[in-house]
Amino acid sequence: MKIEIHSNAISFHLHASEAIWLLNSFQSIQQSYTTPLESLPQKEQSFWKGSLVDPRYSDSLLKSESESLELERAEWKNQRGEIVGRWLEQFNDFNPDQEMKFKFLREEADALLQITNDRRLLLAMNHEIQEKDMHHDLEKLHQNPKAEALIEIDFLAFVQGAIIQCLEYELE
């Protein structure tokens, strides 16, 4: 992957295989973003609702604050669904035999971090990935859904690393 930084945008020049991974990740997270909360599996519903306090303790004392968090998280889910929808349009003419340029606005860089992170967290939750699983040897992974999830989590970490590198210039 090559990165091109413009004045108001950032472009990723992706190899075809990288573009396919990114496309799959976007399509999968888009599915979660656009599915109504009540239609998602229970675990995903809890993920999107979030928790304001340590889940070991009751948050009954912060009931209105917890409801406010839940509403805000639902709003993020909708907003991110719209953003990913726009990004997916860039893949309409994607030819899997060729490289692809994925371009996003600098002001969308944080959204790209958040969206790729949502996907990583959901994959980890759905495949019950623990700390020990994260120290895997890719070559020794057998072909199964958990291994595929770990590879996608690694790929998205690579994407996040690239975005952070671009953004660090702004923080310094």
Binding site: L113, N117, A124, I129, E131, M134, Q160, G161, I164
Partner: peptide, 8 residues
């Protein structure tokens, strides 16, 4: 948590 990157 085991997923979020240190740099992130």
């Amino acid at each position: 948590d085991p997923i979020n990157l240190m740099d992130y």
